[in-house]
Structure formats: C-alpha cells, structure tokens
C-alpha cells in the first residue's frame, strides 16, 4: 500500500543544512498498522509530512497505492490519504463550527449530501448530533480530537496518517481515542501509519514498528519482539528502559548514538 525507499529530507542549505531524514525505507501492507517511534527531533513527523504532501522538498521514492508520488499531490490523493494532528487545540479552526469543519471537505470534493455525511461521521466517532453546531471552544480535548478524526474520515480515505494523535490528551482520554482509532481501523480496513514517542501506544496499536534516531531508522521490529523486550539495537533497548519510567541506573548507562549524518 505504502512503500518508501531511500527517503532523504534536508532542512536548510549549505553548512547549516540539517539532514532530518536519512535514507529511510519501509513498507506498509494494505490494512496494516505501522508505527514509527523515536524521541523528539528524530525525524518521524517529517516522514509523515512527506507522505501527506505537506513537505515538498525531499528525495527518494514514495509509492502509495501503486502510484509513485511527486512533490505535488492532486485532489484524488487527498481523498485517499488523510492525517490527524497531534494538538486538537490547534488543528480545528477556532471560528468554524463542527458542522463547517466537517462539511468543508465534502464541498471541496463536491461529494454532495453534506448533512448526511456530517451526521454519519459524527456518529462514527461517538459524538451525537448535538455537537454539530458547536464551536471548538465548546468541546473538551478528547471531543476535539474525535472531531479531527471525523474530519479525516469524512472523505472516506484508505490511509490515515496519525501524528501523535493522543499525546496532547489526558491519560484516560488517550485510551478512548486509541480504542476509537483501533475500532475504525478494523471496521473500515484502513491503513495506518502512527507516529509516537510513546512505546506503549505504539505497542498497543501497531504490528510492525520502526525505531528512529537522528533521522535514521535504526531498527524495524514486530510487535512481539517489542513485547518480549528483545530488540537488537541498543538504542531501542534504551528507549524501552526509558519507557518504564525514571530509573537512576538506566540514566547512568545512557549513551548517545550516532545518527547517519
């Protein structure tokens, strides 16, 4: 479904250039859930921005649904691939009602029956019709993220890119949103790429996981390997140790790993 080969992203020019993603390659099968983990600045969100077409300066090959992608994407691409952002407080227009947020994509693609589609999308993310004419400030963080998911789904895409979809939410709400996303994925047979710094979230959602450090995919592993806590690369092991919580011994043995720069 998605295949990325030798992806390179460089920010800036000359001696200030920063290689944010270096020679990244991976594949995701249709209906698969693929996770990318790594600390902040490891380049995992940059990969999503390339896949979604938000970042137009990259090298390598990206193939989505059998079509090789260029720097610019057409309207059909947007119907196929959608994205959910990290911060639900920033991803909804503060002056648009939920109704307007959800009916705009319908209008852009001229799909018609906006009202039906909006109500159905709300129902699908577990929000009643009473939410339809609310403004984002009248919603909680979890409800906002549900609206963001509904907006991504209203065009009935087959691929959903999730950029830390739960890390701005309370722990209790995180589980709700994750369960919603898992349910939707099964019901609609969606293909997910989930980016997160939270190993627990990734282990819960994904079958295959790429671990990134400094722009390089250091290891790709199945979820069973992660659950058995038996990764090969020392960086992954360190990430696993860190996910257990603060630990004086673990901190003492922390080391820096060289990126591919």
């Amino acid at each position: 479904m998605i295949s990325v080969n030798g992806l390179d992203v460089v920010f800036g020019r000359g001696h200030r250039a920063l290689r944010a993603v270096a020679d990244a390659s991976f594949e995701v099968e249709a209906g698969g859930v693929y996770g990318i983990v790594g600390e902040s600045g490891s380049g995992k969100s940059t990969i999503l921005n390339v896949l979604s077409g938000l970042n137009r300066r990259w090298n390598g090959t990206v193939t989505i649904d059998g079509e090789r992608q260029g720097q610019r994407r057409d309207q059909d691409f947007h119907k196929k691939v959608q994205m959910v952002f990290q911060d639900p407080y920033g991803s909804l227009h503060p002056r648009h009602t939920v109704d307007r947020i959800l009916s705009e994509p319908v209008a852009i693609h001229g799909l018609g029956q906006a009202e039906d589609r909006v109500l159905r999308a709300l129902e699908e993310v577990g929000l009643g019709p009473e939410f339809r004419f609310r403004y984002p400030h009248q919603l909680s963080g979890g409800q906002r993220q549900r609206v963001a998911v509904a907006r991504a789904l209203i065009l009935e895409p087959r691929i959903l890119l999730l950029d830390e979809p739960t890390s701005a939410l309370d722990v209790s709400v995180q589980a709700e949103v994750l369960n919603l996303l898992t349910g939707l994925q099964r019901r609609r047979n969606l293909t997910y790429i989930l980016v997160s710094h939270d190993l627990a979230v990734v282990a819960h959602m994904c079958r295959r996981i790429a671990v990134m450090n400094r722009g390089v995919i250091v290891e790709e592993l199945g979820v069973e390997t992660l659950r058995r806590r038996a990764p090969e690369h020392p960086y992954t092991r360190q990430l696993l140790d860190a996910s257990i919580g603060y630990n004086r011994e673990a901190v003492a043995t922390m080391e820096e790993f060289e990126g591919g720069v």
Partner: peptide
Amino acid sequence: KADFIKAARLQGAGPIRLIWGHVMPL
C-alpha cells in the same frame, strides 16, 4: 503555519478558499 490550515490543505483546499474562508475571518 497553524495545524488547521495544514489540515485544510490536506483536504485539497486551494489558496483562495484558504485565504477567504480560513485566514480572513481570523
């Protein structure tokens, strides 16, 4: 640079729709 503009772009909104419907009201 706000996420809601990125989201609208990902839905295929063109610059006229973005400026008129998303940027100007703010």
